[in-house]
Design a protein around this nucleic acid. Structure first.
Length: 1095
RNA sequence: GCCGGAGUGGCGGAAUGGCAGACGCGGCGGAUUCAAAAUCCGCUGCCCGAAAGGGUGUGGGGGUUCGACUCCCCCCUCCGGCACCA
């Protein structure tokens, strides 16, 4: 009665969810008890300096309330496998985990519920930690921390102060302490211009030189203390700047550029407006060149590298000053095409450009003040979203004229919002013939278009450009009833002669065509419209017809570009650029210049749940750093967390009046009297603050004296011959520009200031792909939640039965009818992947009823709550165990590919572990079923398996490594079934070790049962011997005319000649040749032979 | 529009110049079972054929090569990024 075997026949020792769970709990406890994965630092007990180091980092998660997503363990499993492998290969492995814990969701939750974000976040962290531990990841949990820990964010604030107290010395292209700037100014090495810029004392400011005025340089000692202070503050790498920011009223905060997508907030999708605001900024632009250069030495995916390069957006060109009538200062522009200056027929400034304000204050005769003011005002309120939606060119003439320094011509200055204030000088010289945007604008407002570049023959091969026609107009007059034909190459005369011969029947043919010789670029023909078709039809190829009405923005050859001092005519674009820049410099109106698209990093947020700034303000509004000994500046408690939703941004912390008001003594501002009353900065830092240096803290997470000890930092981040940094950084590609660029910036600054030993934080970067899910689509393209979808199964008897898809809903096998035609069902069965959706939801509707079904098609989609296709890792582990989960995610496909979660496929990996288990353990009794004698064939296969897994791990090919293990286990099992020797104890031990990085729990259990002492995880990796990797003979394919016709065995390592002789002597081969002689024999030793016959 | 990446059986994928489809899922057949589940064994790209065998096949078209999923050119589709940056 009570004998379990009568009621449940499952063998007691079957590897199922229950046993897996038991084993996993046991070994996780054993690892913890043995501190198996605690990695000692240099100088600590147990540290072995003779081992090489491997710092392998996962992008730490934001601990959301929803818990772990199946995407998280994908990357974490991959790094865990590598770390476990490297450990077995004798590396010191740093493999840490922590929490990116400041952020909006916890604060949003606080707004709704009043629960303090810290409480929400700590709960979420505990849950994440529990979930991660269940996977058996070999993290050194002693090093765990969250960005919200006081012991951590105190150093985030400390680093902010380092950056605040630094400036970028362009002379040496690196950051230096701000004190050294003061010293340089005091010594007179550096000087201050009238505009407040810091320049080298023996150079003159660009504006002065270009405007023809001597540069005003003011001696440091002549400046008032406030002026000096303003100069210094303007040079800091962290500075307070008035910026047009992305203000999101709904979220009550400003957002960085990469947090705004299509004019809406990345989180929540709320509209974003442009507002000027005083904010903390990081001068990341000073590092543009360094950040670009640094990329070159990194082992990063090219796509990510390219994205960073494009984000930084280096452009080489020239700055040019245009004299403005009635204005002292020249109008500065940046252009990448200074060679087109002779075609600059007008200028455009951004609506925010200072010139506009001056004109509004002092209108010119032609200024329409009202219209101009209206236009500027409208542009200001136009959100990025609107700008993106309406790309038609708008603008208005300012009434101002400037002078083109090359042509001496008067050119009108317009205002238009297609010119952006944030790039270059916020003003351009417009060259409509050679720039698409300028061309559109010129067409819209009827501004003159002048062609100054013609395509060179290379570029005109087939797609001839239209600007060419403009060129012809310029050359021959505006005879628009001509159509232009271009004959490339120098044989134009032949072409023309041939044409006229063919047109001999047309009277006056020669008058209908105007021919022009362009020298080596070919010939042009101007054809009168009525005869165009006939003449073109008669042209010998190659000829190109040229259309009308498009600009030519590509390089070419300059024309119409000369004045008394310089001529570009005939020069190819690169040379023309050099020539004109040289002239601009001689004439003192311009010079070479490099610009970057990168903007300074906006670092203030008006939210609560972030690091407070270690900054206070005095009564005059001057900012002061708080004393380092008073760090951290802690967040105050708030009564409520609701943002002030308004046009006028108000930081939340301003509500905490007690906290805001402090004194110099309390804030540790030593250079002010202790009683001085001060006000704290009420903005907080963005989420990217804590993640910009966490990889450093892991090296030495418990250090209370320094953000990281120099010794630990040098060891773990040290280069070992390369540029240095984390040895492998794994995370999603969505951080390609944001986090990965910001972290590089902080690291570069800390490096310049001597705080860390390497300039780049991440030597090798890898992105795991996204894990998607299936969703189902109706004929009308609408998506159906998975729990409405049932798969068809045939029960026979002409009925269709339905089963729910795994992972979606419960299995309901009792349903017996569906109004689905038999032939449709047969087709679905054949195709295998189609499913039906029923127009009802809920099992009650099914019982005994006729059901209306509708065909749906499976498609791959992101996991989402609404589609009910979100997979919860806890559920999967409960059903199969963590080892199965780990193997499944690694087996789905290449790590970098995005791939859909298919609940069915998991069974395959679970079955693999069951077979592995049964290879060693008798499931009924738990006895070992291994032998004591090595089977030679298995031994050979085992060595090959080890070699294969090693090679695959090197290239992060986890899926094929697992396939190889499956193959080995299958072969070993079937050989035993067929009566060969069973796997031996020694072989099973080594197999367990090979499996250990992938499925560590079952590996430990097998190792233990096989009599292994200690932990398998800490055993050395098994070695393979080369001798086992080679067979005595190898089967090669024999192909005739490229088609495989025969196979035969030849000795391994046989020379080509030997193989050829063997193959040609073979009867089957001769038969297949059918008497034809072998004209050529290609031998690929060890692989195949290809015989080419004559005829 | 521009810049990346990808496209291989019913599905996930393997092979990066040398036997296409390893391995897993699913499907079909069989063993076991009172039965089902689980497990085990066999078959499984497509077409023709009873079979032996033959043909065909890696998004489409062209090319290089003795030989192309792989390299080159053009096109199509999907996914990601950027998008008035002068």
């Amino acid at each position: 009665m009570s004998d379990p075997s009568t009621t449940d026949r499952t063998p007691m020792q079957r590897y199922g969810a229950g046993l897996a769970g038991e084993i996993e709990a046991r070994w996780q406890a054993a690892w913890e008890a043995a501190s198996a994965f605690c990695q000692a630092n240099p100088g600590e007990a147990g540290f072995d300096a003779t081992k090489p180091k491997f710092y392998c980092l996962d992008m730490f998660p934001y601990p959301s309330g929803a818990g772990l997503h199946v995407g998280h363990p994908e990357g974490y499993t991959a790094t865990d496998i590598l770390c476990r492998y490297k450990r077995m290969r004798g590396f010191n492995v740093l493999h840490p985990m922590g929490w990116d814990a400041f952020g909006l969701p916890a604060e949003q939750y606080a707004i709704q519920t009043g629960v303090h974000p810290a409480v929400t976040t700590r709960t979420a962290i505990d849950n994440f930690r529990r979930q991660l531990k269940r996977f058996g990841f070999s993290y050194d949990w002693r090093r765990e921390f969250g960005t919200i820990d006081e012991g951590y964010y105190r150093w985030t604030q400390w680093i902010f102060l380092r950056i605040y107290n630094a400036w970028f010395d362009t002379r040496v292209q690196r950051a230096r302490p701000i004190d050294e700037l003061v010293e340089a100014l005091e010594r007179g090495e550096l000087a201050v211009t009238l505009t407040g810029d810091v320049v080298e004392a023996d150079l003159r400011g660009s504006l002065g030189a270009l405007g023809g005025q001597p540069a005003g340089v003011r001696p440091w000692h002549m400046l008032t203390p406030d002026e000096r202070r303003a100069v210094i503050d303007d040079q800091r790498l962290a500075y307070l700047g008035e910026q047009t920011v992305n203000w999101c009223p709904k979220l009550g905060t400003v957002l960085a550029n990469d947090e705004v997508i299509d004019g809406r907030s990345e989180r929540g999708g709320h509209p974003v407006l442009r507002k000027p605001l005083r904010q903390w900024m990081f001068r990341i632009t000073a590092y543009a060149e360094r950040l670009l250069e640094g990329l070159k030495g990194l082992d990063w995916p090219t796509s990510t590298r390219t994205m960073q390069e494009e984000w930084i957006g280096r452009s080489e060109g020239a700055e040019i000053g245009f004299e403005v009538e009635g204005d002292d200062a020249p109008l500065m522009v940046f252009t990448t095409r200074p060679d087109t200056i002779f075609g600059a027929t007008y200028m455009v400034v951004a609506p925010e450009h200072p010139l506009v304000e001056r004109v509004l204050a002092l209108p010119r005769a032609e200024t329409d003040v009202k219209a101009l003011a209206t236009y500027v005002e409208r542009s200001r309120h136009r959100s990025d979203l609107e700008r993106q939606e309406h790309k038609e060119k708008t603008g208005i003439f300012t009434g101002v004229y400037a002078r083109n320094p090359a042509t001496g011509e008067r050119v009108p200055v317009w205002v238009a919002d297609y010119v952006l204030m944030g790039y270059g000088f916020g003003a351009i010289m417009a060259v409509p013939a050679h720039d698409e945007r300028d061309f559109e604008f010129a067409q819209a407002f009827h501004l003159p278009i002048r062609v100054v570049v013609r395509p060179s023959s290379d570029e005109m091969q087939l797609d001839a450009p239209a600007a060419f026609w403009e060129h012809l107009n310029a050359a021959f007059g505006d005879e628009s009833y001509y159509s232009a034909v271009w004959v490339p190459g120098a044989h134009g005369r032949d072409v023309v002669e041939a044409l006229f011969r063919r047109l001999s029947h047309v009277a006056d043919a020669r008058r209908l065509v105007v021919v022009h010789d362009l020298g080596e670029d070919g010939w042009t023909l101007l054809v009168r419209k009525p005869f165009e078709d006939e003449i073109i039809a008669n042209l010998p190829s190659p000829v190109v017809q040229v259309g009308l009405g498009e600009p030519w923005p590509q390089p070419g050859v300059a024309l119409h570009s000369r004045n008394a001092e310089v001529s570009l005519d005939g020069l190819p674009t690169p040379e023309a650029k050099r020539e004109i820049v040289a002239w601009l410099e001689r004439a003192g109106v311009g010079r070479r210049m490099v610009t970057y698209r990168l903007r300074d990093w906006l670092f203030s947020r008006q939210r609560y749940w972030g690091e407070p700034f270690p900054v206070v303000f005095d009564a005059e509004g001057r900012h002061h750093a708080v004393g380092e000994h008073t760090l951290p500046v802690r967040l105050p408690e708030l009564a409520d967390y609701a943002p002030v939703e308004s046009e006028d941004p108000q930081p939340l912390l301003a509500k905490a009046t007690d906290w805001v008001h402090t004194t110099a003594g309390e804030a540790g501002v030593m250079h002010l009297p202790a009683q001085t009353s001060l006000r704290r900065e009420t903005n907080t830092m963005p989420g990217s603050a804590g993640s910009s240096w966490y990889f450093l803290r892991y090296c030495d997470a418990w250090n209370a004296e320094r953000f990281v000890s120099r010794e630990a930092e040098q060891y773990w981040m040290g280069g070992s011959g390369r540029a240095g940094g984390v040895d492998l950084y794994l995370g999603g590609s969505e951080h390609a520009v944001g986090h990965l660029l910001y972290a590089r910036f902080w690291q570069n600054v800390l490096y310049d200031l001597g705080e860390v030993s390497t300039p780049e934080p991440f030597q090798k970067l890898f992105h795991q792909g996204m894990i998607t899910s299936y969703a189902y689509q109706k004929a009308d393209k609408s998506l159906v939640p998975v729990d409405h979808v049932y798969e068809l199964r045939d029960l026979g008897g002409g009925f269709c039965s339905v089963h729910a898809l795994p992972g979606g809903a419960e299995v309901r096998s009792s349903i017996e009818s569906a109004s689905l035609p038999r032939e449709v069902f047969e087709r679905l069965k054949r195709e295998g992947s189609a499913v039906v959706m029923f127009g009802v939801d809920g099992p009650a509707c099914f019982q005994g009823e006729k059901i209306e079904a509708e065909l749906v098609t499976p498609i791959v989609a992101k996991m989402s709550k609404s589609l009910k296709n979100v997979i919860n890792p806890d559920d999967v582990i409960a059903e199969f165990g963590a080892d199965t989960f780990r193997l499944y995610e690694m087996y789905m496909g290449p790590l970098e590919a995005s791939k859909p979660w298919n609940p069915r496929d998991i069974h395959g990996l679970h079955r693999f572990l069951q077979r592995l288990w049964r290879l060693v353990v008798q499931e009924e009794t738990g006895e070992l079923v291994v032998g004591e004698q090595d089977d030679h064939e298995l031994e050979k296969l085992l060595h090959r398996l080890i070699a294969k897994v090693e090679a695959d791990l090197e290239r992060l090919a986890f899926n094929t490594a697992i396939a190889a293990m499956i193959e080995f286990v299958n072969t070993a099992t079937s050989r035993r079934e067929k009566g060969d020797l069973p796997i031996s104890r020694s072989q099973a031990c080594r197999l367990a070790l090979v499996a250990c990085p992938f499925a560590p729990h079952i590996a430990e259990e097998l190792w233990h049962r096989l009599g292994g002492t200690g932990l398998a995880s800490l055993e050395p990796w098994p070695r393979y011997e080369e001798a086992y990797l080679r067979d005595e003979t190898v089967e090669i394919a024999i192909a005739i005319q490229g088609k495989v016709r025969h196979r035969m065995h030849v000795p391994t390592g046989a020379a080509s000649g030997e193989i050829e002789a063997l193959v040609l002597a073979d009867e089957t081969v001769q038969q297949a040749l059918g008497g034809k002689p072998a004209r050529k024999v290609i031998v690929v030793p060890g692989r195949m032979v290809n015989i080419v016959t004559g005829g």
